[in-house]
Design a protein around this nucleic acid. Structure first.
Length: 259
DNA sequence: GGTCATGTTGACTA
DNA sequence: TTAGTCAACATGAC
């Protein structure tokens, strides 16, 4: 499922269920989702505990004694805390089992997500993944710096994790709709006021998304999200939404409201 | 059976 | 360097 609001929701869920308990076992049901050698993973995790978590973009970092465990959820990743490993849901790929027999399951249907280990969070985000600033936490100055020398169209720009981390396909449509900006425009055509507007909309859209725990089907009808389907209409002016394809992703926008 | 999907990456071209 | 296009990854839903 995850874009930024979902990953933030997973983070909160992780914090409420899985911190500060000794990890006594890891069960790897499918090692294709591991980006790290199984032995290294076990060495870093077993007999340790999860201390705290940090989210950067769509990545969740879990601090341990001398390493970070990293989760990426792809398009169909999820976490579930269960009372016993026998309740592990379908498509569970890795189970972290605690001393009290409760367990945290990493679930992935399509296996686009993965689990990794890193010594240092900055090295991972900046050097390895080259991620831009986190879209929800960045300041306006960081946003402007991230856009320097960029000239891509607005939708591809928002989707590019190296520019800004955390915006996915659905939220890129919503952010551009709330900003009333045409996704086909290029970033270098925006004036100061439009840049500030775009920045503010990134924040408010994610704020709402986090509040709603990323559950898209509960979103208010004044948002674009419930309308982004074939023959969907603009919640603002009722025009038929237009479909665009950018970087192989489908997007919806209102040709009348978004300029 | 065909198409589509909340993501990322690498190859290639301009 | 930056951008755009395409294909690949694996699986379920409609």
């Amino acid at each position: 499922m995850p874009e930024l609001p979902e990953v933030e929701t997973y983070k909160n869920y992780f914090d409420q269920t899985s911190l500060n308990q000794e990890i006594k076992d890891i069960i790897i049901k499918d090692n294709r989702i591991l980006n790290v050698d199984e032995l290294i993973l076990k060495d870093k995790v077993l007999n340790n505990s999860f201390i705290s978590t940090t989210r950067h973009g769509k990545y969740l970092f879990v601090q341990m004694k001398d390493a970070y465990l990293i989760f990426h959820f792809g398009m169909t990743g999820d976490l579930e805390y269960v009372e016993d490993i026998k309740y592990a849901p379908k498509f569970t790929k890795v189970i972290f089992s605690f001393n009290n027999n409760h367990a945290l399951c990493y679930i992935s249907i399509r296996m686009f997500g993965w689990i990794d280990i890193a010594d240092n969070m900055e090295d991972f985000t900046k050097k390895k993944m080259k991620l831009g600033p986190d879209a929800y936490k960045m300041t306006f100055d960081e946003f402007i710096i991230a856009l320097k020398r960029r000239s891509a169209n607005l939708k591809s720009l928002l989707l590019n994790q190296e520019v800004i981390a955390g915006v996915g396909n659905i939220y890129s449509d919503e952010i551009l709709f709330q900003s009333r900006l045409d996704p086909n425009r290029t970033i270098d055509t925006l004036n100061e006021k439009e840049l500030k507007l775009l920045f503010d909309c990134i924040k408010t859209v994610f704020e709402y998304g986090i509040k709603m725990k990323g559950e898209l089907d509960t979103y208010s009808g004044k948002y674009l999200i419930p309308h982004r389907k074939k023959n969907g209409t603009c919640p603002n002016c009722d025009s038929l939404l237009r479909l665009i394809e950018v970087t192989g992703r489908r997007g919806y926008y209102c040709p009348k409201c978004q300029k």
